[in-house]
Design a protein around this nucleic acid. Structure first.
Lengths: 236, 236
DNA sequence: CCAAAAGTGTTACATATACACCCATGC
DNA sequence: GCATGGGTGTATATGTAACACTTTTGG
């Protein structure tokens, strides 16, 4: 037997929600399409699954093509499969989301694909069901960032506590108390001081920290939860 | 244009993890395969996506075929897409999990498909990557049941608080304090007394409750979290 | 000297946990 | 009477939330 006899083969697409953070707002990397279909409209970065390619590898490839980045945080989100979601041909789309350091990408690749970083609050209407995809990704990011310290994936290697706080404020769209936040983050032992100070800030007083990779792995492996109180915020 | 020119069409399967609860243990509805491939081995219930069928509809159809049930809790989990996951032909599988009341199903449909309810703790080795699928489903169930009161989907319409407690003990594999559990559940206002008592229990003292459907919807819509302290348990 | 950013300390409140007692039923 | 299962109450600990003060730097 060389294959299943019944049933139809279907086109499998992948779409990628790419989150970034510029120090103030949460951003999305979006494409102003310079190709058909839906030429000229905004969409997520996407592509098709090849027959000889693992699903996750395909997502990695698509992310690499657009950003020049590999080894980023990349997680499968959900698969969208309404019959008419793509008017050209019946296509199901496996959606991934990724967290990247906005400073690390390849500007040429972005230019080639006509991609730009857009504030989440200014997101244009996207094609097909891409708006729903973004909505689902944001929900997942909020949930995940409450239980696991994945927010660091959006920051440069060295960062200050107030920068980290701004990131969480952007993710959950809330204002946080500086003192409580600092105390809780320090209690996680996830940060290692570098001795350096952040000279770009106004007062040059911010201490730069690095992530403690070992502790980080412990948290990712789930021996303990990260910021349980944020789970409530994931529900909104 | 009638379709995308490039890229290959791929077979899309669906597999379904069906959870039940018999009052003591969490159970899975599994198939002892009376068909090829992997005749005689255990697997999840599955099927293929038709070209003219929404993905979620296909999952509903497969669940219905096996259990005779519709309108159950059914949620997409994840898509498995390793190239060699199915040795017969390259197939990606979109996995759903479902919560059913174990008393409600159609015994004939079960018999036809050679299906039986198996304690999660006695799960046999399953074909392909189905073991991983079950593992992921259990993790998702634990997380979800901590934030949303979906556990009720596994119980009959009327149930006692101790029964509900046993369910949560089975899901999280822990022992809970009777008094604290009762107080917390009552505080949610999710339960409505029926006035009846559970005459099957030894002391006939257990009060039977029904779910307050409106409150239930509120929780599902996420205006408040359900049992935040359980999120910690989801991580193990 | 003042404004803005960053670092640290204290208190009150809510929530989770641990534990003790009483009641009803069947045997 | 007593074992079992089911219902209710209270003290403690832990963690979250609310709030005040000090220091440094640039203008």
């Amino acid at each position: 037997m060389t294959g299943y006899q019944h049933s139809s083969r279907i086109l499998v697409a992948l779409d990628c929600i790419i989150f970034g953070f510029d120090g103030e707002a949460l951003k999305l990397l979006l494409i102003k399409r310079n190709f058909d279909p839906e030429f000229g409209k905004w969409s997520l970065m996407g592509g098709f699954l090849n027959a000889d390619e693992d699903l996750h590898d395909a997502a990695t490839r698509i992310l690499f093509t657009l950003t020049g980045l590999q080894n980023n945080y990349l997680e499968q989100l959900q698969t969208f499969g309404a019959v008419k979601r793509d008017p050209v041909e019946r296509t199901i789309s496996v959606v991934y989301y990724s967290l990247v350091n906005i400073d690390d990408q390849d500007p040429l690749a972005l230019k080639t694909h006509n991609a730009s970083w857009i504030d989440l609050s200014n997101k244009p209407r996207l094609i097909f069901d891409h708006d729903q995809m973004v909505e689902a990704a944001l929900r997942q990011l909020r949930y995940k960032a409450a239980l696991y310290p994945i927010g660091f994936e959006l920051l440069p290697e060295k960062f200050t506590v107030p920068q980290l706080q701004k990131l969480y404020e952007a993710i959950y769209n809330v204002k946080l108390d500086r003192r409580n936040f600092s105390r809780k983050i320090m209690a996680t032992e996830l940060l290692m001081g570098t001795g350096e100070k952040d000279l770009t800030s106004v007062t040059k007083k911010g201490q730069l920290f690095k992530l403690n990779k070992e502790k980080y792995q412990d948290y990712l492996n789930g021996y303990q939860s990260f910021l349980p109180e944020f789970t409530e915020l994931s529900l909104s």
